[in-house]
Nucleic acid binder design. Structure first.
Length: 294
DNA sequence: AAGATCACCAACCGCAAGACG
DNA sequence: ACGTCTTGCGGTTGGTGATCT
């Protein structure tokens, strides 16, 4: 049987788009908006398949695209995100406003790979080329997670579940406020003075309230993990069933996240609004404070 | 000057997941 | 519950311009 083709290939153009086709597509989307790619070509008078239209729009014609060279900051951000997410180009693209997954993928393959190799780093494992990846990969990811919180990403990028992980913006991270910062006395102090803490809290509150403030890219993201996954990984971690190290970063990620996710506060039964400072990262945002619910 | 090779990137393809009837 | 449709993703290809020999 097989699937029916996405379009009648015999009557569609292929290859490079002409200016006229671009214009038709842009005009149509301006009038009717995105969506319904299957019927769009016909409606817009294009001899293209819907897939092709969608790709052309997303990768080239969208008005919010940032054309031009990648900056050094973007380079480093891509490397960092890749070390964490692997080849999840759409997720990476979600952290780079104006860049598409295709663009980042191409850029990775043509520039960054070489750049990393020249630094003596394996672009797949993000480890020194002469080292074996086996034993320390999990630690590497835990480190990456510690350094990299997810925040400010468009919600749409995180509500969709990539594989088994949930990247739910705002769900597991909350606005720091006076109430929520009260410690349940279950951890060591942050070591900051009250004034410093207040300043940080104000800064975080401002960042949260105005996520678009500031020009610089913000690496703050919150990563959560689905309860199904967490229970599965927990059970996998228990007994002798230690998962084998594989190239799939997500597997490591799951383990790493679970390792991080087991917050003593939750185990002791504190609610979300009573998060301890142990669960607060260096920037003051909260991570992993989510019960590994059943 | 011409052919060979390289680098880049737009576009294609197949697959998977989610939506929907 | 199942099949079909639609959309989105990631890997790959192929055209084109730049550089090298």
């Amino acid at each position: 049987m097989g699937r029916s083709p996405c379009c009648e290939k015999a009557h569609t153009n292929k290859g490079a788009w002409t200016k006229d086709e671009d214009q038709r597509l842009v005009d149509y989307i301006r009038l009717h908006g995105e969506g319904c790619w299957r019927s769009l070509p016909k409606a817009a008078g294009l001899l293209r398949c819907g897939k092709s239209c969608r790709l052309r729009w997303i990768n080239y014609l969208r008005p919010d695209l940032k054309r031009g060279n990648f900056t050094e900051d973007e380079d480093e951000l891509i490397i960092k995100l890749h070390s964490l997410l692997g080849n999840k180009w759409s997720l990476i693209a979600g952290r780079l406003p104006g860049r598409t997954d295709n663009e980042i993928k191409n850029y990775w393959n043509t520039h960054i790979k070489r750049k990393l190799i020249s630094r003596g780093i394996d672009p797949q494992t993000h480890r020194p080329s002469n080292e074996t990846a086996a034993n320390t990969t999990t630690n590497r990811i835990i480190t990456a997670l510690t350094e990299l919180d997810f925040r400010n990403a468009p919600k749409s990028n995180f509500m969709k579940t990539p594989s088994s992980l949930e990247f739910k913006h705002n769900e597991f991270q909350f606005k720091p406020n006076a109430d929520s910062l009260e410690e349940p006395n279950c951890t060591a102090s942050s070591g900051m003075t009250t004034d410093e803490e207040q300043q940080q809290q104000q800064l975080h509150r401002k960042q949260y309230d105005n996520p678009s403030d500031g020009e610089e890219l913000n690496l703050e993201l919150s990563i959560g993990i689905s309860s199904a996954v967490s229970s599965r990984v927990l059970s996998a971690n228990s007994a002798e069933s230690k998962p084998k190290l594989e190239n799939n970063n997500f597997q490591f990620l799951e383990q790493a996240m679970v390792a991080k996710a087991v917050c003593l506060c939750w185990q002791l039964g504190f609610g979300r609004s009573e998060i301890c400072r142990n669960c607060q990262n260096s920037n003051g945002f909260y991570r992993f404070c989510r019960p590994l619910d059943s």
